[in-house]
Design a protein around this nucleic acid. Sequence first.
DNA 1: TTGAAAGCGGTACCAT
DNA 2: ATGGTACCGCTTTCAA
Lengths: 321, 321
Amino acid sequence: MITIKQVAEYAGVSVATVSRALNDSGYVGKESRKKVEEAVEALGYFPNEVARSLFQKTSRMLGLLLPDISNPYFPLLAKGVEDCAQKNGYMVILGNVEEDADKEEMYVKFFSQYNISGILSAASGKKAYGAQVPQVLLDRALEGENYSVSTDDTLGGELAGQAVVDAGAREIIVMAGPRKVSGARDRLSGILSVLNKEQVSYKVLETETFNVEKAEATAQKLFDTFDTFDTVIANNDVFALAVMKEAIKRGFSIPEDIQIIGYDNMLFSRLMYPGLTTVAQPAYEVGYKGAKMLIDLIEKKTVADKRVKLEPELIRRDSLR
Amino acid sequence: MITIKQVAEYAGVSVATVSRALNDSGYVGKESRKKVEEAVEALGYFPNEVARSLFQKTSRMLGLLLPDISNPYFPLLAKGVEDCAQKNGYMVILGNVEEDADKEEMYVKFFSQYNISGILSAASGKKAYGAQVPQVLLDRALEGENYSVSTDDTLGGELAGQAVVDAGAREIIVMAGPRKVSGARDRLSGILSVLNKEQVSYKVLETETFNVEKAEATAQKLFDTFDTFDTVIANNDVFALAVMKEAIKRGFSIPEDIQIIGYDNMLFSRLMYPGLTTVAQPAYEVGYKGAKMLIDLIEKKTVADKRVKLEPELIRRDSLR
DNA sequence: TTGAAAGCGGTACCAT
DNA sequence: ATGGTACCGCTTTCAA
């Protein structure tokens, strides 16, 4: 590894001068600057960020807390984060916390040990981890004093509800996500507001998790619990897919006997047959804009709104009549 | 932030003693140890890893290079990596390099600036990034002197080929992945060896990418290019899904008219209808074992074999007769 | 405009 | 068994 000291020697100046030249801070003579540049070039020098970080008590690293990477929603979000981070010269550290508060805590501690400069959290969203560094919440906005980028889930719920009544739904099962997840609550209230207004009959099926492993069991439970319904508003696309499969297995056809709408607009929703009508969440954008906001916070730029809401969009395909 | 110096003062010993006590290195008297422990407890101290890293020229961070997180295979792999890393006290830094050599280089430089202790790469697999730190290749094994964990894709290909002939295939389209990806080559040769041996008729459709965006177009192309076939061996599950959709759209039924087999065993393969017969790649395990191997390398433990091959497994569902 | 030197928070060598 | 101290690579006063 080649150090600033070697560059200084090669250039025939002091390390202080090299540092100033490299960071454009303070005065550096034309001559010196040129000599430094040559030395850097010749030696192939690049600064050690660890040393820099030790002094500055910060770094160009972002921590990303995710509840479950194997849920296909999050990789997209992560990609948005990563793209933005990279574009701005930051690296992202991945923390898969699986709705486990201990893991989350462990990661936050880890982050602070490494002088991470900010945290993006799509996990449980406990406010203020000691508030050491700026943080922005992804997708799960929270009350109170904090920054967040999320989807307008109330609107998303309304979109789903409206789509379903427009398609002539008469007996609806709405799958409600975990109550503790604010997005799931908003979505449910959006759905119900439309359903109530339109006076169509519905029942709610509570599900306690978004966990992907549970999808099949949940779908079965749905059919075992209810018998007269013609429409289901699913939790997300994975659950919708599971419900579709269970429906077909039980001899219903889609959308003729049972129609269904999902949430998320995952890759496979487009590719499956029949195509799944769903509400698209701008996962990539949530990630990208969240990262941008965090970086602005870190770099003390002004952030216009603390709580950005992105609009979901209804994607019409073939699972609704 | 509370430092080792403060702990030393509180405990009434020197920083050297605190350091030794904390790291169990060298002699520490019973008394001193106790005083240090109390001080740590009272002050809520935990060591700054950046300072430690500066001195040791290494860190407890792993770099993970991925070609495309939005391809659902990789999140699973990443999860395996993350689980293993976490269990061993390491953090993982995410690098989405998208088959872009510049990005890859940029990341590797980034990694070295942050004293990362090892690299896991599922990306292009260019050997030895200056060979500064240990690295293990994931899923794309390479010739020569290096460590890797991957799936036995030749076997995977054989499995797929055999399954298809056992199901009575007569005219097969085999989709061949990008030639430059060693796994894709192995898979193809596995498939063809079986097909040739069994003397069943086939044609090969070349695809230049695993890129998920291309799936629909590729499926259309398949049907436009060939007309008499009863079986397709797809590149991966995403492509299989796209082919299934296109088939159904064109009035074929599955598996009666056209049967199909995928590769990967992604979540949705189980959830779709008809269930997709596929060859399961142990993505999570590749990630986990790769991380374990890397950590062993870093910690100078002996690594039994440099090139671990994990076995894929045929998952029978309903898309084959 | 430049350089010497004092840290940043640890680790480890060398005396004691 | 313990403490003083040099050093890891870099940034930033401060004096010249």
